[in-house]
Amino acid sequence: MAKAKRSFYRSFKENLTGYMFVLPYFCFFGLFTLYPILQGFFMSLTERDIFGFDIRFVGLKNYAQMLTDQRFWTALKNTASFTLMDVPTNVVLAILLATLLNRHFRGKEISLSMVFFPRLLSISVIAFIWLWLYEPEWGLLNHYLSFLGVGPISWLRNPSVALRAVVVATVWWTVGNNVVLFMAGMQQIPTEVYEAAELDGSVGLHRFFRITLPLLRPTAQFVVIMQIIASFQIFGQVNIMTGGGPAGATRVLVQYIYETGFSYFEMGYAAALSYILFLLIMVVSVIQLVWLRER
């Protein structure tokens, strides 16, 4: 305490310089991060329409309403299924591709570019490309699958397939990002480790499972957590490709928040839904901290 006080008075000028440097950032931080977090909680305790008329304090009513809101539970379930499908597919595929791409061969550079490039396309472009590939009658996918005796499948109109179809499009979009991260992780593994393993006769698959994978653990943990958090927030693909349909089969949490707040203008309820999403992401983040510290 005494020390803090001393450091406060020690150099008024030094303090002032520090504050001047952080001031611009904290103006934005206060206005667009802190304030909305607090205001969001306040809004979640109210009922009001979008114009701001008639704001009534309703306590925890919005949260209670969720318990019996079938749409909310479906949205939660869809978000969970999406995450459970997207994360393992994405991570496993990324590790495999990174392993393949991390070797020396002709066309390495261009191969990495081709796998990575979709990541740079905007979500609307991704949605358009896949809408066309998934076209039931004229789309490429059904055409080529018909040779395997599969289909035709109404990818985006069949409630039991639609969410999986969105996952495929998402993996195509994002896997390149994770490939780059895993390749960076692999390049950090010292070559001596591999040389020593070679002397012990560890090659090929054995080497991959015994050396590469365990040493990739920090990267994998990071990618898994980021991918889970990103999956919780999935929105654009769904919004453009299916609009949450058919019959709510792809209505994920953020889509539901969007509909509630900006189609039905139930801002209080939308704010409460956002807080639940916030809570879920907090839980994942805390698990991450514990998990990473365990190492």
């Binding site: 952080v22 931080f29 977090i37 809004m43 801002m267 992401i281 907090m282």
Partner: peptide, 26 residues
């Protein structure tokens, strides 16, 4: 201050869209 900034990385933008929209309308 730095810890507060760090902690805020856990708050994704999607969570604050409703109050932010209210703020920008105001």
């Amino acid at each position: 201050l730095f810890s507060i900034v760090l902690a805020s990385m856990m708050v994704p933008g999607q969570v604050t869209i409703v109050p932010l929209f209210a703020l920008f309308s105001d």
